[in-house]
Amino acid sequence: MKRVSRLLKGLAKKRRKGVAWLVDPEKVDDISQFAWVAKSGLDLILVGGSVSASPAFEDTVLQLKKVAGDIPVCIFPGSGLQLSDSADAILFMSLISGRNPEFLISHQVLAAPEVARMNLEVLPTAYLLVNQGELLSVHAVSQTLPLSNDDLELVRATALAGKFLGMRFFYLDAGSGAAAPVSAKVIEVVKDAVASPLIVGGGLSSGDKVKNAFEAGADLVVIGNAAEKDPDFLAEVLDIKQSYNLIEY
């Protein structure tokens, strides 16, 4: 088993909590200022964004590897063009909450030969966009509508379809900059349905929202915009993680 798979499966099996930092190459200029990251307690660094292709992508991955220390750097691709063999792993995602074939399978087909050539750990990931009806940049790029936090049956059925198709990891995302995160009830329903490592991101802009995600069943939370606006918030989330991991089950 590869490194990131072992991390995610270990969190789920041992009922531990993890934190990932999502870096958008379009929003962060000088990665060297994040030298503190190596000893921060982060579990994973994700790199990617909604922009399909960016000349800064490869450079951002290389810079992150320099400051990451032992923390794995994993690609969170906005398209099949966001690839780098300098990363440790890639979330090989299918946007199963939408019906746009480009993001269900087409980008994946185009990227597959290049991913096979690279020395990347590949994580088959079901990606579901779920929020309160907000249309954000990820929805504009993917040309899909999010599932609703209120439509629990459809969310559950969609997650089950991903499970039965053989996807091993699940990512619930409200979208970058979402005012409200994926609801606790949605997280509970999906975790119960798939019993697989569950990543949750988007709209986690306060400590209480992070706690709600953890308590509902998220194994790994992803912090992006909120950390860019307030670096101290990432430290707060890491403290919350540490508190949860002191609990003996």
Rank of each mutant, 00 (worst) to 15 (best):
M1L: 06
V4Y: 04
R6A: 12
K9W: 11
K13P: 00
K14Q: 14
R15C: 08
A20W: 11
V28D: 03
D29P: 01
D29K: 14
S32V: 08
S32D: 14
Q33R: 15
F34M: 15
W36G: 13
W36N: 08
A38V: 07
K39L: 08
G41W: 09
L44G: 07
L44D: 10
V51G: 00
P55C: 04
E58A: 12
T60S: 14
Q63Y: 04
L64G: 04
K65C: 11
K66Q: 15
V67R: 08
A68N: 05
I75L: 13
G80D: 10
Q82H: 07
Q82V: 08
L83R: 08
L83G: 12
D85L: 09
A89Y: 10
M93F: 10
S94E: 09
E102F: 02
L104V: 10
I105Q: 03
V109G: 05
V109H: 09
A116Y: 09
R117P: 02
M118Q: 10
M118K: 14
M118Y: 15
T125M: 09
A126L: 10
L129Y: 10
N131Q: 04
G133F: 09
V138K: 00
V138L: 04
V141G: 00
Q143A: 15
S148R: 12
D151I: 12
E153F: 11
E153S: 15
G162T: 06
K163E: 12
F164W: 14
Y171C: 13
L172Q: 11
A178M: 05
A178P: 04
P181C: 08
P181F: 09
A184W: 06
I187T: 12
I187G: 06
I187H: 03
E188M: 05
E188I: 01
A193I: 02
A193C: 02
V194H: 07
S196I: 00
P197F: 04
I199V: 15
L204P: 01
S205P: 00
G207P: 00
K209T: 04
K209V: 02
A213V: 12
F214E: 01
G217E: 09
G217L: 05
V221P: 05
I223F: 05
I223D: 05
G224T: 06
K229I: 03
K229W: 07
D230S: 14
F233Y: 14
E236P: 00
L238N: 06
L238S: 07
K241V: 12
S243I: 01
Y244K: 00
Y244T: 05
N245F: 09
